[in-house]
Design a protein around this nucleic acid. Structure first.
Lengths: 226, 226
DNA sequence: GTCGATCTTGAACAGATCTTGAACAAGGCG
DNA sequence: CGCCTTGTTCAAGATCTGTTCAAGATCGAC
């Protein structure tokens, strides 16, 4: 569950926001003051923070800096009263990730929130892990594991497995696979692909008959089933 | 000098933008088509990319994805014709860092550009001290230690080791290493890299067979395992 | 310019990896 | 069932890759 912290004292803004974010499936924590907001960052560990620039107690920029000390990676979106203020904020370099001038369209803010969350996620789980069945594949380190134990795959075998596992349950045609794992215009008119599928199946322990992990789609290609 | 690449075919938008960005002290490269844009990313090495969603040749989203393959860290700001399109873009997850709906205030766009550059810079700062296994590397003093004892590394050897250790367990392709330690467009079609890996391994005492610190990923490149 | 350090290059080797064809198995269709 | 097509497996050999060495080129300090 994704938790969003909203620090905003103006109810005319917070009320509709809470409603929309709720329907979008987010878990929303709301505070009206900066100090409560800082506390909530620690206690509620939000995935993203929406921060009003003008708060009754502490300046939003100071809240931002304070939060940055503890959670430098937390995505923070600043809500500013006027677009002109953005220059100032950026100049001050408080460390917000995004700035949305009020008034804003709710859909736009939601889009920005999702964009920010996606970027944060991408940056954090940089090791792109593909899992399916007993297999785990890390495309960054180029290692593959069967039941937690590392497999010794060759380059082609790894590419092949990673491709199939990138879209589990999707059937890849032989042409697609050749174009992706081999060269775009390579045309080994032979049994090359089958041989690799064969050794790969053996290495990943897919020895039932017919195989259950890498499934043959006769006349078309292959499919990975997690 | 900070270089910004603007990919935009509509002159009513690009013309004022070029002017403002120029006065802001940026070095601006302008292309009108997506394919020229992709080329400019490689040849001009921009620090940030402004990308129109609708281009005469390639869809802006495809340009974005293509660029992401080579330069995953390049900040990309998408210019979208209408705010409503943002939802779509975000949903498609092409990997832009920010989305600015047209029409936009120039000051706001400039603010966003500066914010994005600041974030990118902060994220890029290499940690001064890298450790892994018996090795410790200080990128500031450019010294490396093996079990606390200083190593005598040449410049290339140091860069190579620092690069590999900057992301332990990540496999770097030969191309990535050459682009990073040597020049972007250097193409020593020879065994240069291997020779350096070889001497580096000897110096860091990685003499088991196969080596355990700098691991060969056959057909791809190398990986540091701490 | 000279000298030493560093970097690059090509050759030779070892070994891993890939490809190929053949033989066989399995499915599809009349 | 018989025939054709398609997929699987195997072993052999071709090809590709990485390692190391030694020599030559280049660079930088003096």
């Amino acid at each position: 569950m994704t938790t969003i912290l909203l620090v905003e004292d103006d109810e005319r803004i917070s009320e509709p926001l809470l409603r929309v974010l709720g329907t979008e499936g987010f878990d929303v924590v709301h505070t009206s003051t900066g100090s409560d907001g800082i506390e909530a960052v620690i206690t509620r560990k939000p995935d993203l923070m929406l921060l009003d620039l003008t708060l009754p107690d502490i300046d939003g920029l100071d809240v931002c800096r304070k939060v940055r000390e503890d959670r430098p990676e937390l995505p923070i979106i600043m809500l500013t009263a006027r677009a002109e203020e953005m220059d100032v904020i950026v100049g001050l370099g408080a460390g917000a990730d995004d700035y949305v001038p009020k008034p804003f369209r709710l859909a736009e803010l939601v889009a920005r929130i999702k964009a920010r969350l996606r970027v944060a996620q991408a940056a954090h789980q940089m090791p792109r892990e593909l899992t399916g069945g007993p297999l785990r594949v890390n495309t960054e380190s180029r290692r593959a594991y069967l039941d937690g134990q590392e497999l010794e795959l060759t380059s082609k075998e790894f590419d092949l497995l990673a491709l199939l596992m990138s879209r589990p349950d999707a059937t890849f045609t032989r042409e697609q696979i050749m174009a992706s794992v081999w060269d775009e215009n390579y045309w080994g008119s032979t049994r090359t692909l089958d041989t690799h599928i064969s050794t790969l199946r053996r290495k990943i322990g897919d020895d039932s008959d017919p195989p259950t992990l890498i499934v043959t789609v006769r006349g078309v290609g292959f499919r990975f089933e997690g």
